[in-house]
Design a protein around this nucleic acid. Sequence first.
DNA 1: CTCCGTGCAAATAGTTTGCAACCAA
DNA 2: TTGGTTGCAAACTATTTGCACGGAG
Lengths: 141, 141
Amino acid sequence: MPRTDPHNTRGEAWLARANLRPTRQRLLLADLLVGDGRDRHVTAEWLHDAARRSGDKVSLATVYNTLRAFSEAGLVQEITVDGTGSYFDTRLDDHPHFYWEDGARLTDAGTQPIEIVNLPDAPEGTEIAKIDVVIRLRPKA
Amino acid sequence: MPRTDPHNTRGEAWLARANLRPTRQRLLLADLLVGDGRDRHVTAEWLHDAARRSGDKVSLATVYNTLRAFSEAGLVQEITVDGTGSYFDTRLDDHPHFYWEDGARLTDAGTQPIEIVNLPDAPEGTEIAKIDVVIRLRPKA
DNA sequence: CTCCGTGCAAATAGTTTGCAACCAA
DNA sequence: TTGGTTGCAAACTATTTGCACGGAG
């Protein structure tokens, strides 16, 4: 399948799914995120750089606003690991992550779903919205 | 045991354990943190307010610096939940937390240690530094 | 006496917002 | 046409830092 289009159709369908207008900027960012069908964990900064690298230009503010829009539309998941900067994950199910303390990278952890034994019950009047599991890695001595 | 002292001795011993000079500000903050022996999850902002409420005054910058010093000395654990603000936990073992999405409170989750089945292996050349488990709660509909 | 600790204000990092110009429907 | 979208700069929040003063050892 030759690259006749500046972008493939995946990003377009992805936006359509969430009823988001396919503007030039959104298509660009969508393609960078899901264009090849692989799961991705990006920061706003990284995505902004990737856009510039690809030749097109988008303002950083728009990258932030767009990531927020995607997140609110349920197209990506926001993950916070340490105070500085959040990651956006294109994979939507509840799954554990590795956080590489050197280099500050975030990746999916393992292939099988984990299971938590002795999971505490949600207190009276509340329910569990989501369980964040972050496995922090450091280089082995 | 009447309150003859402006502070009890717990904070003092706690500081000594980490070889931190017992200055007025540190003693005050230490007492607010571990004075009653209970585990606590505080933000810098909360601790600063607590200090002012108690009558004494400490600058917010010092609260930040002091919490960082405590954290580096291994007296408290830093926990990040969402981009805005981090919490410092006086309990030191690896344990799960509840994060109350309304009100942004952080508390210990359950009383028994949890166990994770199918925990992914640390990738080649790395080791697990810590596993953060945050159970996000929302009010039940 | 010597240095670490403190306070203040200013700096910083990441992110959001106000507003005018723009563009998809 | 019209309301959603973008870009820029300015605003904001949480946190850190530079520097002069002060207090613990």
